[in-house]
């Protein structure tokens, strides 16, 4: 019987090695896998590359992981936001590497990794400093920038419902990067608000088919912070 549910956070974090590339879902606090981030902190894994849209806020969650000096490099589109004090401090002191990626390019690099496409040409950033040093090509009269896929060793995502095959749904705008990152990692770990029986999710409504999900842990923690 296939059962992707794990009972403990230690089981959810099993095998996350030092030096891993970890994809962290969510956009702001919506869809952010807070419990799994705490689990990652607890696991002790270090020298990490974190891929996330934002670089954490306050001194909890992703910001805490950064503050503990466990992240060598962060790849994101919008590191600077209300309360991103820890990141800005580390960055100013040269204690963290930053790769800034346009949000759509970030999403597409993840999608490409999940879809087995090693690189693609995009119009985004053509003619800007974010394209410096990158291969460009004129296709049908317009300039495009070559971008490579961005595979993760691990993806940490937050779902709304999950069944034991790892079929997932998301809540409202909580789908964001979660569904994309689920495809892009060797091991995808989902925390879910609700556990449902196999067959209970309308097949038409499955947003992430179970093939992309490695482990699921039930974390009914409630709504994102307002």
């Amino acid at each position: 019987m296939i059962d992707k549910f794990v009972r403990s956070m230690a089981d959810a974090m099993e095998g996350i090695a030092d030096g891993s590339t970890v994809l962290v879902g969510g956009f702001g606090s919506v869809g952010q896998p807070d419990a799994l981030i705490d689990g990652l902190i607890e696991s002790g894994a270090k020298d990490l590359t974190i891929v996330a849209n934002n670089a954490g806020a306050g001194r909890v969650g992703l910001a805490k992981l950064l503050e503990l000096r466990r992240v060598r490099r962060i790849i994101c589109s919008f590191p600077r936001s209300a309360g991103s004090v820890v990141f800005e401090e580390l960055y100013a002191n040269g204690e963290i590497e930053l790769e800034i990626v346009p949000q759509g390019t970030l999403a597409e690099r993840l999608r490409a990794a999940g879809a087995g496409i090693p690189a693609f040409f995009t119009p985004t950033a053509a003619g800007t400093q974010l394209a410096e040093g990158k291969e460009t090509r004129v296709i049908d009269g317009r300039e495009y920038v070559l971008e490579k896929w961005l595979p993760g060793d691990v993806a940490l995502i937050e779902a709304w419902q999950a069944d034991r095959w790892g079929n997932l749904t998301y809540r409202s705008s909580g789908r964001n990067f979660n569904a994309v990152m689920a495809m892009a990692a060797t091991t995808t770990v989902a925390q879910t608000q609700h556990v449902v029986d196999l067959g209970a999710i309308d097949p038409e409504a499955v947003a992430t088919p179970g093939i992309f999900t490695s482990r699921v842990i039930h974390v009914p923690y409630g709504d994102p912070e307002i």
Partner: peptide, 18 residues
Amino acid sequence: SATESAPAVGGAMDLAAG
């Protein structure tokens, strides 16, 4: 500026180009 500390681009470049 080209040397701004911790620049943040978000979706601006994708929107502008797309």
